[in-house]
């Protein structure tokens, strides 16, 4: 099969996925689907409530996934989480604080916080240092983000994005401060480390479910359903390939 036809198949798959997402979002707009319960999100709701009540802050670590890198989707998923968390805590005097290990991501985190602040009922001035670049290498990023956990009246640390092993330092800092930590990453080494060190780790592609569980909009639950459908498609293709290989056709 030529590269052109592979491109056509890929593009058609993307178009179909997009069409399905839009269709499902339209059809299910009045009765949103219910997903399996993930305890981490229930704990997160509790942490948001506590933060609003006691005037503390949430710290969202967005990782090091640059927008022009293959890890950009995890960064975008983290930004969706940041936007929603900022909206949910907009009644509080202390908006969430975001740290990033990539400059473009830090700028987008500022823009995200700014756009939520514009709709916020609280009349305080916007603090442009709410979204911060804490370092450009893995461990300098973690070292720069560590003081945020301890010094900024943070009651919950959320790690949403692309991390490496350095994520363990951030969850350890949250543990030492006795604060809640929820962590999700697209990176396999980080997932292994976060499974051991975070209070509530999210595994696999659960990072991309953050928007749906935080009710960020109708396209988020629809995209989860499309992911499930595509997963079944992949399973079928793998099984057919396995059978054809056994039969000697492939």
């Amino acid at each position: 099969m030529t590269a052109f036809w592979l491109g056509v198949i890929g593009f058609v798959l993307v178009l179909m996925s997009g069409g399905l997402m839009l269709g499902l979002a339209f059809l299910r707009r009045k009765s949103p689907p219910t997903f399996r319960e993930i305890p981490a999100f229930r704990h997160l709701q509790d942490a948001i409530g506590r933060a609003v009540e006691d005037g503390s802050r949430l710290h969202v670590s967005l990782g090091r996934g640059g927008l022009i890198s293959p890890q950009s989707a995890s960064a975008l998923a983290g930004l969706v989480g940041l936007r929603r968390l900022a909206a949910l805590t907009s009644a509080s005097d202390n908006p969430p604080i975001a740290s990033a290990g990539d400059a473009s991501l830090a700028m987008l985190s500022q823009e995200t916080l700014r756009s939520v602040h514009l709709t916020s009922p609280v009349g305080t001035a916007f603090d442009p240092t709410g979204g911060r670049l804490t370092g450009l290498t893995p461990f300098s990023y973690a070292a720069g983000a560590l003081p945020l956990v301890g010094d900024e009246n943070v009651s919950a640390s959320l790690l949403l994005g692309n991390f490496g092993p350095e994520a363990g330092l951030l969850t350890e800092a949250a543990e030492r401060q006795g604060t809640f930590s929820l962590a999700a990453s697209d990176s396999l080494p980080a997932q292994a480390i976060l499974y051991a060190s975070a209070q509530d780790p999210l595994i696999g592609e659960e990072l991309f479910a953050v928007g749906a569980y935080l009710e960020a909009g109708p396209l988020h639950p629809a995209s989860l359903i499309v992911q499930d459908l595509l997963r079944w498609l992949v399973v079928v293709v793998l099984l057919v390939g396995f059978v054809l290989k056994l039969a000697g056709v492939l």
Binding site: S17, A73, E111, Q227
Partner: peptide, 26 residues
Amino acid sequence: GILIGVALGTLTTGLRVLFGADRPYG
């Protein structure tokens, strides 16, 4: 298995940005 799941999540995240549902640029 995890990487396939991440790839599918990446696809739908990209589509949401393309549709303008997620606007990280404000």
